[in-house]
Design a protein around this nucleic acid. Structure first.
Lengths: 228, 228
DNA sequence: TTCTATACTTTGACTATTCAAAATCCATGA
DNA sequence: TCATGGATTTTGAATAGTCAAAGTATAGAA
């Protein structure tokens, strides 16, 4: 079994590969994601590559092999099921669940995990709307667009939040910008680099384009319009 | 914070000290409990003693300081609450809960632990009847006697099982000798070194004195007798 | 008192993971 | 073509925990 250190490297690698499909992840990037120095990342990656979980190209970066991806997805499954469990069953704060799950994901047994999965009714997404890989290591990754891509007057539903930091999640929750929430774009000013979004039944929220891009929504290009 | 390794040493030390109150725990004993060689135990104990959590007397053994006891009790609280949680909430098998909790006890946060405590209704004993230390690090340790000390015809109630091994627990469960179960001593033969105990509504079970000693009961010396 | 079995301690070595700092590579712009 | 700067790799060293094997202490037996 992979050590918890290696599990972390694999998980971060997988997440990063989603951003830039198929590309090699540069060492510096991986190092900051895992929270170690670049030298450490190089050493570990070489070891991981030796065990067949990744392909390492010096000065180019790393990429997971199929075996590495599978392992990463198992870790991610544990992580996301735990997050949902912590929020739903234990009532842990949404913004803290990520950090808690980060620890638990490396020690939870398969037995306990399947119990949790059962208790939650075999859920397909975690509290941030991120898909939970199946126990066979499959994830469905629907194409989504973000709040930043919508026009004034568009209405949509948030399905996913692409930032796990507790500060951002606290802000999102306080604003009412949570998964399942319906929102309307009230203003859209590309020149100013900001939009204003109004969650159903809440005050409008100002968002920079960078912040807006973290809210993934559906439908992407709404056909049904609604008066603003 | 103490590492998970040190937490394990402290926990085993505390448990062992309960057996022989106040005495120093010999190195060999500690080593087997923790599952390392004697040399390793000596090295670790010296480090633990240096950090003020235990007193180490070369060739005599170790004893926890007050600070060490407190830390040990916090670990034990985590362990026992987790065991109960695994059994009650997740439906994990009684006999497996111990091993699962063994891992989780070192990574669970205070926040999650208090949630679990709340969810379980601030329980006072774990699934084996072992008392759960309070968050302030207090345990009440009632004087109990064992099935081995009772006479033929005595009836009593099992309150605690002093063996965490899953084999023994599986046997106990299969026989009906679980906490809260009422039992009657049907035969008692010190010469043969065995007794026969009948759990309410079950078949009588043969027990060696060693096995019988693992079932702690109340009342100790029943005043109310009952026909056999 | 002396010997010895047994438990305990010491020593040297190994693995996994990490960092800091020095060395190296390489795309870029002059 | 050549010097640079930034990213990357290498190197040397440190920490935590572990084992095997060699050395040591001591309670009893003789």
């Amino acid at each position: 079994m992979a050590s918890r250190t290696i599990e972390n490297y694999l998980k971060q690698l997988w997440l990063q590969q989603q951003e830039a499909r198929g590309k090699f992840v540069p060492m510096g990037k991986l190092a900051t994601l895992v929270g170690v120095t670049a030298g450490t990342a190089t050493t570990m990656v070489k070891a991981i590559a030796d065990s067949g979980l990744a392909k390492y190209a010096p000065r180019a970066g790393v990429r997971l092999t199929r075996a590495g991806e599978q392992l990463a997805l198992h870790v991610l499954r544990r992580h996301r099921l735990l997050e949902l469990f912590l929020v739903e069953i234990l009532g842990i704060d949404w913004s803290d669940a990520h950090a808690e799950a980060e620890e638990l994901e490396h020690v939870i047994s398969e037995t306990v995990l399947e119990r949790i999965d059962l208790l939650l009714g075999h859920p397909s997404v975690d509290p941030h709307g991120d898909p939970i890989p199946s126990s066979a290591g499959k994830v469905e990754a629907p194409e989504l667009c973000s709040l930043a891509e919508l026009q004034k007057g568009n209405s949509t539903v948030i399905v996913r939040i692409a930032d796990q930091s507790s500060e951002f999640l606290r802000f999102a929750q306080a604003s009412g910008l949570v998964p399942q929430a319906a929102v309307v774009i009230e203003h859209h000013n590309p020149q100013a680099g900001a939009i204003s979004a109004r969650p159903d039944g809440k005050q409008p929220v100002m968002l920079s384009m960078a912040a807006a891009a973290k809210f993934l929504v559906r439908p992407c290009a709404p056909t049904g319009r609604r008066k603003k």
